[in-house]
Design a protein around this nucleic acid. Sequence first.
DNA 1: TGCTAACCGAGACGGTACGTCCCGTCTTGCG
DNA 2: CGCAAGACGGGACGTACCGTCTCGGTTAGCA
Lengths: 207, 207, 207, 207
Amino acid sequence: MQSRTPSSPRTGRPRSAAADEAILEATRAALVELGWSKLTLGDVATRAGVAKTTLYRRWAGKNELVVDAVAVLFDELELPDRGSLAADIEGVVLQFAALLDRPETKTALMAVVAESTRDEPLRERIRTSIVDRQKRLVLEGRARAERRGELPAAPDPGTAAATADLIFDVAAGAVVHRTLVSAEPVDGEWVRRFTALLLGGLAAAAD
Amino acid sequence: MQSRTPSSPRTGRPRSAAADEAILEATRAALVELGWSKLTLGDVATRAGVAKTTLYRRWAGKNELVVDAVAVLFDELELPDRGSLAADIEGVVLQFAALLDRPETKTALMAVVAESTRDEPLRERIRTSIVDRQKRLVLEGRARAERRGELPAAPDPGTAAATADLIFDVAAGAVVHRTLVSAEPVDGEWVRRFTALLLGGLAAAAD
Amino acid sequence: MQSRTPSSPRTGRPRSAAADEAILEATRAALVELGWSKLTLGDVATRAGVAKTTLYRRWAGKNELVVDAVAVLFDELELPDRGSLAADIEGVVLQFAALLDRPETKTALMAVVAESTRDEPLRERIRTSIVDRQKRLVLEGRARAERRGELPAAPDPGTAAATADLIFDVAAGAVVHRTLVSAEPVDGEWVRRFTALLLGGLAAAAD
Amino acid sequence: MQSRTPSSPRTGRPRSAAADEAILEATRAALVELGWSKLTLGDVATRAGVAKTTLYRRWAGKNELVVDAVAVLFDELELPDRGSLAADIEGVVLQFAALLDRPETKTALMAVVAESTRDEPLRERIRTSIVDRQKRLVLEGRARAERRGELPAAPDPGTAAATADLIFDVAAGAVVHRTLVSAEPVDGEWVRRFTALLLGGLAAAAD
DNA sequence: TGCTAACCGAGACGGTACGTCCCGTCTTGCG
DNA sequence: CGCAAGACGGGACGTACCGTCTCGGTTAGCA
């Protein structure tokens, strides 16, 4: 999250470990209440019962803090075995949609992505903290489908990776667009239609 | 763009039409130079050679101004007839990707979408100014494909509309996600793979 | 009050005479309600049912307008004959104090005087519109007292003028200071003490 | 000058003492250069090398700031023993006139008094910071004159206080009126005539 | 009776200052 | 040396008025 300079290894009062979690929790609460654009670091510090200095000692700014505060929520995503590839996909898409529907993520995710278009370190932080953790779900799903015999083994590693990336962009992008731009619900009906489209496309592409 | 209350129809000095375009142009320039988060309305006013008050008289805030400034760019999208549905899709997706790669849209689009999660009028403005104008491309493409016989006629209007919405969310979402989140290029290769996936899915869903 | 440039003598629509009085009346009302510092010309124009341009066509600014609006009040001061110099003085001092106690004059008079310290034309306007009109009361009172035999005739015109100026500064200054700075009432008791002081001093100085 | 709420007695970074004096000095300089009505707090802050927020943290507004900036000048007034009551009075009146002739006081004093007619706390601040400190000169002069035998001892405390107030309003009012309203010089000649009037009146009143 | 020039209302214009909010940094004294 | 507190220099905010400038429309007096 943040690095201690290793120059002065252990002298003086150590940092409070409890403060970290209090700050992240306060950040999420402030996101829910105020939204991204009205969230201020001074307010977060007050909510966490912490001085502003403490906060700045640990995070470089609002973007980094919010990424950390929200990232942990994405670790809840799982890929439970529902017996078929279609069911697995539907399950994880619904989970993802539910996560995106929470007010803290809804207001924060697109905001930090927008910021990241002009801030390479921030983009990297988002990738490692959030995006790549979702991508594993695609890989895991594919592997499970191959074990079940629902999909043929990947012809070669390059194509497999490109396909995984494509699926990831399509699935995550579609859910995000439907939720935030179209502002329509991602319900069972929509998920079934989307999954049918995706699996149909994969099957056709495999020919 | 912004409406005059029709209460006082035609009295007083009329608003300068030239100022409007100068302001929108200045806004785009500032977006390119500074990005969304460092853009200030005072700076836009200065660039446009206009007083800050003039700007506030016409737009409610940064969000509304940026939506209007960027919206006109999306009207450039077209659906030229390339002879086949696949080629048509590839062409429009590449156009859309090129548009999203411009620095003004890249930094602004996700930002205003993020803001719109807590601002219903803003969402509506985005929808009418930007999103719905793109959706026509989907409908036009479908109609053309039907005329060519590449796709069967829609079984019923409701299903057709739902399918159009789905395609729109998938296509726009995938391109946006690839460009802004994954930060990978939307090149010919990717577009071919995506189009194949989409058309394969549509064919399978039509069975 | 305000001068028409005599270049174009009499053509076109003449200025509305009614507007002038409406503006001055609105100015006084605004002074009572808002005080000097919160009075705005736009507000005065609105109250008078007049366009801002009309107002600026006739007065150079807030200072000049307020001087004109208040000046007329000072013309109410009179020096009724009460039979003795002391009684005459007490009467006029009480009148002046009552005038200074009105909210329009209280808030405006010192304000324009303060402005006039850096604005010579304004000072001249104040002098001719307000101050000199009061000074005549002193001269009139002296003349009457001489006719009554209460005061000896002036030894020479220069001394007489200097004495009149001194009395004027002492009397007006004392009342203004008591009213606005000390913020104590100018009541009968105070006026008697002041008049006794003044007449005693004049008698002593005449020896 | 301004009071810290004693709720949080001694925590956080203390206010810079140097800033206070820099701000007041800058205020006086701005008064000389620009006059009351063109003085802006932003400009004062810039001159003092201080942020606008620092200034607003310590003073409620322009009025309060100017009162404090000017008040210190009035503490320079003294009542040096010149051997007789008349000489003492002439000396202090000349001092007061010289003070009122300085551009900072000339432009500021009437302005804040004008504002104070609609702002009771401001009037109180003027009284305690400026007016009451001058009144001591009257009391001191009277005491000294009694010691010298030039004036009889006060008959009773109430009358003595009322007389002191009257003398104060007359003397301060006359000098202010002559300087700011009549805009004539307070020279030796005028002061002699005024002092003769005042002392003659006092002697007559004591009978 | 019709011209014409100056008036009028309304309100947008470029501009200045306001007083507030938040930024990210810097002292303080305490633990 | 970390920490809570809070003042610091700084920058942008959105608002209020300033005094000026178009507008379309009115209202005299002269022809």
